[in-house]
Design a protein around this nucleic acid. Structure first.
Length: 609
RNA sequence: GGGCCCGUAGCUCAGCAUGGACAGAGUGUUGGACUUCUAAUCCAGUGGUCAAGGGAUCGAAGCCCUUCGGGCCCGCCA
């Protein structure tokens, strides 16, 4: 709260100084370094109405300001800005207090939010493209939870699509063994060997394609041998995929299955509603003759089967809580973080109270923006909360990395599970873990293996997660193996390392920091820079929350780590005499805030590295 | 043909929502700093017609329009 209090105090002061002048919507924001502690653009905005140059007007306003409380002074900059100085004797202590108070940074949200992410076809292992989805989704749900929302995280398992039909075809009619070769996870085997193999052979074999379609229909019917095999296969793949996600620190509340949505009757309800409301119409002529369509998009084929989007609509309505719940629920299993993962079932589970969602956030890459727009429009017509498609640009492979996978290219390449061209999530994780273990061992030759292992995992998880969210969601990631295995510079290990350094100081200090002590002795620029950032944590979380933007938190962590490392290199903490306690507190507050912020990103903050 | 995203330093990216103070990081490159709380670090130097053009504005990397370049979507696939 601390910095917000300063901004409020400054606004109060300026408001008073502005009385009698034209009202404008000016801002008071944290100042850029070197320009005081808070800045306002009031003079710029009023210069037109007052017929004065901004600089003159700023000087006039500054004169009329009466500093007090957290504000110690105000100056008019020749540029026209009003620069506000804080009373650091007071502010330092306030910031320290906030940093060490429970729940600092969040607690302002109160919505009920449903987040769906991951939702990878259960016929293959996750690749790094999927990982971006998983990490964005998990990070968003952490931001929402930090803010104070009640969050339910869903993973939608498309266990009745064509991709599943293909692998069922492979297992039942093409003689693929149901057991993977030793050392290969089932999900990877299913994707790399069976799926790739089937699609390769089906490419020039219309007979196989036809069989695959027949299997798909059988799966949808439910009581067939194909449906049984599909259920077994997708269960096994799902279990392996969840292992991958869990290893990255991701958690869910519930699994939903497309097969259940199809058989639940939800579709009939939603379809009926759309017909009633005139959204869905039966095309009588033209190329879509015999199909039910919404705005030229086919939702029911002429043979009566539903398309992908048609399955999405009832699920969306269910997520929003707009239809009667046809499901019951049971425990899928405990997750590594100790929470229980539930799954929906059509019979045999318990009923569960569900709160209607204020908003539903669906994380899917931007290539599906059109379809999501349609779903979103339909949900709006249905009424209820907000349906948000959180899109992001996909991950592509750099030319160099694509070449190592056997793709001839000079420009980079899209990944393709179907063709087996991708970087696996598990492989990437293992590679980073090995690298991190090497580095950890180098620095800590006497450390026991378990600890080295724990640190390497933390570093690997951090490195992957940070890569996936540090840039804007609207920017495509060109994945390069070389660059992505770096552990220096603007990477998670840098942030984790700064935390470990700080922990070490606290560990070595003769006494615990006394946070009620006098903080007014922290007068150095580098100390103030840290305090300023520490005091802005809640502003940052608020920004990330409003804009559903993980990168905001990532950049904050980076700024904070830079500030600490700069401080660390310049000043002693232990043995700093009168300054020792205050600096210990600064170090402690840094640990507290950055580990919390890293936690929001799902990045562990090890004690040592 | 219609629509979405991107274009800022050699490379990877912030900044654009809410226009104002010298366009910032990382990486690369050059030089420097470990008998001192971990050098996965830090300091200094290097590096920019903010894709181009026009418009509105006292003021544009940011807003509007146009053009160019790159990626993607528009299926009775999912």
């Amino acid at each position: 709260m601390a910095y917000e209090a300063l901004l409020e105090a400054a606004r109060h002061m300026i408001d008073a100084a502005l009385s009698g002048m034209p009202r404008v919507e000016y801002v008071v924001e944290p100042a850029r370094p070197g320009f005081g502690d808070a800045s306002s653009n009031a003079a710029f905005l009023m210069s037109g109405a007052m017929k004065m140059r901004p600089a003159e007007l700023a000087a006039r306003i500054a004169e009329r300001c009466r500093p007090g409380g957290l504000v110690s002074g105000v100056e008019a900059h020749p540029s026209g800005y009003l620069n506000v100085r804080a009373d650091w004797d007071v502010l330092s202590g306030r910031i320290m207090e906030s940093c060490m108070s429970a729940g600092y940074g969040g607690g302002f949200g109160s919505r009920s939010t449903v987040v769906e992410h991951t939702s990878v076809n259960p016929n293959k292992a996750l690749h790094i493209g999927h990982v971006r989805n998983v990490v964005i989704g998990d990070t968003i749900s952490r931001i929402l939870r930090k803010a104070g929302d009640r969050v339910t995280v869903l993973n939608y398992v498309d266990d009745s699509g064509l991709q599943v039909a293909d692998v069922v075809l492979g297992f039942t009619q093409m003689g693929y063994d149901t057991e993977p070769p030793p050392g290969k996870k089932f999900d990877a085997y299913c994707g790399d060997v069976v799926y790739v193999g089937v699609t390769e052979r089906a490419g020039d074999d219309p007979g196989l394609k036809e069989q695959s379609r027949k299997i798909l229909a059988d799966i949808e019917r439910g009581d067939t041998e194909s449906a049984k095999v599909a259920a077994e296969v997708t269960r096994r793949v799902l279990a392996d995929q969840l292992e991958t996600c869990w290893s990255l620190g991701v958690r869910y509340d519930m699994l939903n299955y497309e097969s259940q949505v199809v058989r639940s009757g939800l579709w009939r309800t939603a379809f009926g509603k759309m017909k009633e409301m005139g959204m869905a119409t039966l095309a009588r002529e033209g190329e879509n003759a015999g199909c039910w369509v919404i705005r030229d998009k086919v939702i029911v084929r002429s043979n009566g089967t539903a398309t992908y989007m048609a399955k999405d609509i009832p699920y969306a309505a269910w997520k929003m809580g707009l239809v009667e719940d046809p499901f019951t629920y049971r425990e899928y299993g405990a997750q590594p973080d100790g929470t229980m993962l539930y799954e929906s079932v059509l019979e045999g589970g318990r009923r569960m109270e569900r709160e209607a969602a204020d908003r539903v956030i669906t994380v899917i890459d931007s290539r599906q923006a059109d379809l999501q727009k349609t779903v979103s429009d339909i949900m709006e017509r249905f009424g209820g909360g907000e349906y948000i498609h959180l899109g992001y640009e996909a991950v592509t492979l750099s030319a160099a990395t694509a070449r190592t996978l056997g793709v001839q290219t000079h420009t980079g390449s899209q990944m393709s599970g179907r063709r087996g061209i991708y970087v696996g999530a598990d492989q990437m994780y293992a590679k980073l873990r090995d690298r991190a273990a090497e580095e950890t061992y180098k620095r800590n030759p006497d450390m026991n293996e378990d600890m080295v292992d724990a640190i390497s995992r933390a570093v690997a998880v951090g490195a992957i997660r940070y890569e996936m969210i540090r840039q804007d969601l609207g920017r495509a990631i060109t994945f390069d193996m070389e660059r992505s295995t770096r552990l220096e510079g603007d990477t998670a290990p840098y942030l984790q390392y700064s935390h470990a350094r700080a922990r070490r100081i606290l560990e070595r200090a003769a006494s615990e920091p006394d946070y009620t002590g006098d903080m007014s002795v922290l007068i150095q620029n580098k100390e103030r820079a840290m305090l300023r950032l520490l005091g802005m944590y809640n502003i940052v979380v608020g920004d990330a929350y409003r804009n559903l933007s993980p990168k905001v938190v990532a950049r904050y962590c980076h700024d904070l780590a830079v500030a600490f490392n700069t401080f660390y290199e310049s000043y002693k903490v232990i043995g700093a005499g009168d300054l020792e306690n205050a600096r210990l507190c600064l170090t402690g507050a840094f640990c507290s805030v950055i580990s919390d912020a890293l936690g929001v990103l799902g990045i562990p903050a090890p004690e040592r590295m």
